[in-house]
Design a protein around this nucleic acid. Sequence first.
DNA 1: ATGGACGTTCGGCATAGTCGAAATGCGTTC
DNA 2: GAACGCATTTCGACTATGCCGAACGTCCAT
Lengths: 263, 263
Amino acid sequence: MIQSVDRAVRILTALQGARRMGLGELAAQLELAPSTVHGIVRTLLDHGMIAQERDSGRYRLGPATLRLGNVYLDTLELRSRSVPWAEDLAARTGMAVRTAVLLAGPGGDVIVVAHEPRPGGGRQMNEVGIVVPAHACALGKALLAFDPAGEPAFDTAGEPLRSMTGETITDPARLRTELAAIRRVGLATEAEEAVLGEYGLAAPVADHSGTIAGAIGLVVPQTEWPVGPGATDALRAAARSISRELGAPSWPPVVRDRPAASA
Amino acid sequence: MIQSVDRAVRILTALQGARRMGLGELAAQLELAPSTVHGIVRTLLDHGMIAQERDSGRYRLGPATLRLGNVYLDTLELRSRSVPWAEDLAARTGMAVRTAVLLAGPGGDVIVVAHEPRPGGGRQMNEVGIVVPAHACALGKALLAFDPAGEPAFDTAGEPLRSMTGETITDPARLRTELAAIRRVGLATEAEEAVLGEYGLAAPVADHSGTIAGAIGLVVPQTEWPVGPGATDALRAAARSISRELGAPSWPPVVRDRPAASA
DNA sequence: ATGGACGTTCGGCATAGTCGAAATGCGTTC
DNA sequence: GAACGCATTTCGACTATGCCGAACGTCCAT
C-alpha cells in the first residue's frame, strides 16, 4: 500500500464527508502535519480532483471527480444491461427500480448505479449515486448475502451496526441469520429499515464469473406492502435475465468460499 | 507535486480513456515499471477507486469514483442555484438548458454539471457529466473568455485545436478574436462546432469573488437558429440572476489579470 | 505437454516524501 | 488606522518510503 496515495484518497474521502475543509482541519483529521497534507492537496488541485475557494482558501471536491464517476457509469455493463429491464419492471409494477453495487472500504455501503423513476410520479430526483448502509436496505442485504467478501466486512466483533430508523437491524447475529435466509430464497426484503415509510424488495445479479455483480430492487411505498406474487416474480425474472445477459452460469449466484463457517 | 499521487491520478485518467486496461498497458502508457504501477493500483483497489475483473485481471474504474462525483455535484452551489433558473429558461424557450464548469488539466474541456431537458421531448439522456472540448461549444467559449486562466490554457504554440466537425474553430488566433468579442457582448455562440445540427448560446456566471464560476446555455436545434431576442434576454437575465445569488458584485464578470497581452 | 504472457511478490538502493520551522498573506480587533 | 492572530504556504534536511529489476506462480494458447 503506497502511503501517499492512500493519504490522497483519505483526503478525498474526508472532503466528501465535510463539504468544505481548511488545510488545518484536514491535517487534524488525518493526524498529519499541515505541510504534508498541503503537498498532496496541491497535487490533487493540479488535476482538478479538488478545488480551492479563492477567498477562504478552503478546499472542496473538484470537477474531475465528476468526470471519473461518469465514466465509471458508462463502463459498467451491469448498468447498461439493467436499464431495459428496469424500465419493464417499473412499467409492470408501477414502482421505482434501483440497481446498486457494493462499495469497497469500511462501512459496508451500497451505491445506486441506475434508477428508473416510478411511472407517472412527476419530477423525481435522480437517485444515481446515492449511498445507503448495506445492512439497512434490501439491495444491500442481497449483496451481502451473496458476496463472499461482503459478510465478513461488517464482522466488527459484535458491536452494533449503525441505526437509521427504529427498524434497522443493528445486531450482527440477527443480520447473519437473515442473510442465510436470503441465500435460500434468492430475495431480500426491507421494511422501513433505512427510511420510514419505505419498503423494498431486491434480488442479486451475477456476472460471467459466477460472482455477484450487483443487485436490482423495487422501492415499495407503504401502501403497496407486501407486494403480490406478480411483482415478486417479475423482479426475480429480471434479475435472472440480467445475470444471463452478463454471462452468469447460474442464478441465484452460488456463494463459494466458506459455506458455513458460522456456528 | 507528489510523484506517486500524480501517478495515481494519471492511472485513473488513463482508465477513463480506455475502459479496461491490463497492468502492462497501464505501465506502458505511463512509461513506468509494471511493479511500480502495481503498487499504486493495489492501493486504489483497496479504496474502491478502481476495480479488477475477476477473470481477466484487467482494471476498470471503481464505484468509489461515482460517490466522489456525486458528492461534488451536491456541494456545488452553482448547480443548486442554477436548477430553478434552468427550469424557467427551458419552459420559456422550449429548449434544453445546460450548466457547465471548466475542467482543469490539459485539453481545456468543460463538463456539464446540470442539465434541464427540453420540455415535452420525451425520454432524454441525462447529460450531467458529459465532457466537451471548451473551444468547440458555446459554454466552453463563455468560460474561456472570462476565465483568466482559461485562455492561456490552449495557448500551445499555435498548433491547431482538435476538430469535432467541419465547423470547429481550430485556429487559436481566430478563437482568441472570438473570445474578445464574447467578452464585449457577454454571450457566446456555437454553430455546429461540436455536433452537426446543434447550435448553442451561453452566458458566463460569476461568483462572490467576482471570478467566473461556470456558464449556462441553451441547446438550440437547427430549426430554431438564430434564436430571437426573447430567448437571448432570458438567458442573459438567468445568468445575471444566478451570479447575483452567488454573491457576484457585477455581471458580466470582469476579466482581471492581463487585459491585452496579445499583439 | 510446452511455451508464452500476464499479474504478482520480494528485496536493495536511492530517490522522493515527510515533517519542523519560518514566511507570507489576510481578516479581524482594538 | 495599526497591530494582532490565524491560516495557508514555502523552504530545507533527514530518513523513511516507494521505486525498480528480477524471480515466482498462474492461466491461456499453441
